[in-house]
Structures are given as C-alpha cells and as structure tokens.
Design a protein around this nucleic acid. Sequence first.
DNA 1: TATTGTGTACAGTTTAAACTGTACGTAATT
DNA 2: AATTACGTACAGTTTAAACTGTACACAATA
Lengths: 174, 174
Amino acid sequence: MIIMNNPALEEFQTKTIHEFSKTLEMFGLAPGDARLFTTLYINPSPMTLDDMSATLGKSKTSMSTGIRSLLEQGLVERVWVKGVRKDLYQANEELYRSFLSCFIEKWIQSANTHKMNLDQIQKEMKTDYQKFHQENIAEHANYLYERTEEMKAFHEWVADAFCNMLDSTKRGND
Amino acid sequence: MIIMNNPALEEFQTKTIHEFSKTLEMFGLAPGDARLFTTLYINPSPMTLDDMSATLGKSKTSMSTGIRSLLEQGLVERVWVKGVRKDLYQANEELYRSFLSCFIEKWIQSANTHKMNLDQIQKEMKTDYQKFHQENIAEHANYLYERTEEMKAFHEWVADAFCNMLDSTKRGND
DNA sequence: TATTGTGTACAGTTTAAACTGTACGTAATT
DNA sequence: AATTACGTACAGTTTAAACTGTACACAATA
C-alpha cells in the first residue's frame, strides 16, 4: 500500500500532500516537517524511514531528523509491529485534537512566557527610574513603560483567545 | 525622541523590541518584518527610513524593502508631516484590531483557499475513478479520497475557529 | 561470536534568504 | 534649469537553513 503503483493516483497523492502541507505551515510547522507529517497522515499504514524517503524523494537522514522533530512536537508516534525490525511511524490520529491542541498550547505558552519576560523588563526599568528622572528623559522612559504595559495586555488577550480555541477543540465541533 | 540619548534606556528599548518581535513572529511575520514593526510601534513619533536604519543598525535598503512588506500587509501606514521631505511611517494604531484582524483574516482566507483546492483535487479524482476501479486500486483511491474529505473538514473547522476569534476582537475584550 | 541490517552523528555541500553598497530615477529646492 | 536629497532597483555578498553521503554504534539474526 505504501509504494504507489499508479502514476495518476500518485500524482493526486503528491498534490494533496503539497496542498495540505501549506495549511500546516500556516501553523508554524517547518515546510519539511509539514510535508513529512502529511505524508504519514495520508498513508494507510505506518511507514518506515525508507518508505518516507521513497515517497518524498529525500535522503534517509532527512527523514530521521524530520521524524525526531515531529516526535518532539508530539505529532507523530512510533508503533511496533510484530516481526518488523524497522522503526514504524504514524501520524498521531485525530488531526484536530493532536495537531491543533499541540500548536495552540504552544502559542498559549509562548504568549505567557513573553508576557513574563516583559514584566521582568518592567521591573528592571523601575529600578533605574530615578536615574532616568534625573537625566531628564523621564518622558521617554514613561512612554516606553506604557508601551510594554500595552504589550503585556496584548499577550494576555492572545492567551485568552487561544484558550477559548482550545476549549472548543475539547468540546468537539465535529 | 527618536535617537536614544541614554544607554540604559536604549538597552531596555532593544530588549523590548526583541521580546515582542518574537511574539509577532509566532503569528507568521518574518523576523525582520517583526523587528521593524515593533520598532515603529514602540516609537512615540513616526519614523523615517534613516531613523529605522539607525535604530536597528541595518541598511537603508533593508528598511525600504521591509517597510514595503509591512505596507502590503496593512500593518504600517505612511503619514505626512508639513515641512518634512522624508517619508514618515508609523505602526497602524490599535495593535489588537489591526494586527490581529490582519493575520486572522489571512488565516481564514488561506483555510478557505486550501479547502477549495482540495475540492478541486477531489473532482479530478472522481473523473479518474473508473480507471482506478478497473486497475484494481480502488481501495487506495477511496482511502485517499476519504483523507482529503477529512482535510476539508479540518479546514472548515480552522476557518470557523478563527472567525470566532475575529468576532471577539471586534466585540473588544479590553 | 560473527554478520547483517538499521538509525543517527557528523562533516561537507547545496540552496535559499537576508542584507549591503552602488547607481539611478524622481521629486523638491534654489 | 540646475542642484540637492530621497527612495528603490539591482547585483553581489554574507549568513543560515536544508539536505546528502559516509561512517559508526547498536541491535537482531545466524
């Protein structure tokens, strides 16, 4: 089932992989990783590194590093099949839940991290506030502080919005 | 106000720019564009290409191409000030509304486009269906078709989710 | 234990993106 | 009209990412 035996069907598969990969890239997945994930997702059975290599026309080393990247992101899992020596991988089933929640959570976490970093910067600014005041650049300092305050609010908003999105994946819309 | 006159304050500004840029990159903005946008956003007054060049330590040409990119994305606007020959640019005010809606709309549009493309692929597959059936690979063809169907549903879900997000920006959470 | 097969570390290569400096078209100034 | 100043097109350079092939460590087979 892995090796295509029909040129026309293979063409469709390639086009579909290409098309869907672009969507995944939209979510921040690297182009190579996106192609690899889609390939696994589209394939009826788990694939070996050699299978992927053949399907995508890239080296086995590329597949190895790509798979590791996808594993770290929790998008792919390794499966064992009795009697098969090679490592077998498949896309984490349920595209919506695994892929989306993975990326949305990443976004939420990033937003929170960056907000904390901005908070840290603000604290340091407060420490130097007296100095700024003396040197007569208090206005600019205040302005910068105000901006960081806005940025923090922005991060908060983003985190909230994505949390809502995450909830809606859990409730299940489909 | 543009040229920094205090090393400590400049340090804070640089750190803030760097920090916030990472968040914007999360939304798909190219690193260079993100830095440029944040610079404009953080500055109290509109800036010239030379100002940006000085602040970011990059060439004027870079600023020129970067600004064009941001203009195309609607994230930055040109402003005229009486008596100033140079072009002046500023970040589109209201970060939430302009930036977010810009990117969310882009996502929605992408999701819809890709869904349409998948639909087109499905139509072409239907045309060849008889052929696949004769050649005894109907099973695989059906499987592929089923997958594209799932992908379409996924795109629909994404578009919906982002539409909700867009609504929430319009209602205004802050 | 010897041998074959499998995944990955590493170094070198290719490819693409980001950036720079010069040179030029165009608009403002005199 | 002449000159100055500004923005950008273009070509060349630097930088970083993606990819490949070889070589090796480890596990499975015999």
